[in-house]
Design a protein around this nucleic acid. Structure first.
Length: 104
DNA sequence: GGACTGACACTGG
DNA sequence: ACCAGTGCCAGTC
């Protein structure tokens, strides 16, 4: 387990309820603006399910991975909707309103 | 140590 | 605006 992993998990946990963040955002918080892929890797490992809300992490399109883990995209959508995240009829997150901005 | 892979992002046509 | 190609980073073989 590398420090980068910890940084990724820390960033993901920082995402407030009702908001979502893109892999790029997480990578930026980790100090690697171009490590979006590595972020996906870290989340794929997901050694701490339950404390790591991976469902709050989406790609820049607001969608999700084709092979999501905890039961399928439908489950993620349900979790996000339960948190108050606005969804588009296309089945994607409305990044215009739900994108988390690490202001402080 | 080198090469391939993977839940992405960006630029160019 | 959409499709294709390239770049990035960390992990695993």
């Amino acid at each position: 387990m590398s420090a980068f992993y910890d940084a990724v998990y820390r960033a993901v946990e920082r995402i407030p309820r009702g908001k979502v963040a893109t892999y790029g955002q997480i990578a930026l918080l980790c100090g690697r603006p171009r490590a979006s892929r590595a972020v996906g890797w870290a989340l794929h490992q997901n050694p701490l399910p339950g404390i790591i809300p991976c469902h709050r992490v989406v790609n820049r399109k607001g969608g999700m991975a084709p092979a999501f883990a905890f039961g399928g995209p439908q489950v993620q959508r349900g979790l996000l909707e339960a948190e108050g995240v606005p969804f588009l009829p296309e089945g994607q997150v409305d990044l215009s309103r739900a994108l988390w901005t690490p202001d402080f």
